[in-house]
């Protein structure tokens, strides 16, 4: 009973997160401006991180958690660097 419940809810959650991934990818590809692409990329990172966490629950291992932690760190650095780039035109002055 609980296995069926978890299987289905995990599958539906993963499909929803996959669709969210597609939406964010569309925004990255379409733009129209650079800042729109960066917001899309930021969302893409978060969606990917959540997808990894659901994979972790599905497989019952904590390995995916570490990947999620690394992504959570990377999203800050990359978006901050891109925002800096948009502001000044270069990352390191």
């Amino acid at each position: 009973m609980s296995v069926t419940l978890l299987t289905w809810s995990l599958m539906i959650a993963q499909i929803m997160l996959g669709l969210a991934f597609v939406c964010a990818t569309y925004r990255v590809l379409r733009g129209p401006r650079a800042q729109d692409r960066v917001v899309g990329l930021d969302t893409l990172y978060v969606n990917g991180m959540l997808l990894l966490l659901t994979f972790g629950i599905r497989s019952g291992t904590v390995l995916y958690f570490e990947a999620a932690l690394v992504i959570a760190l990377l999203v800050f650095v990359s978006t901050a660097a891109l925002a800096k780039f948009l502001m000044r035109g270069e990352v390191i002055e």
Partner: peptide, 10 residues
Amino acid sequence: GAGFTLTGSI
């Protein structure tokens, strides 16, 4: 959680 994330991306 997945629902809110999907709504945000929509």
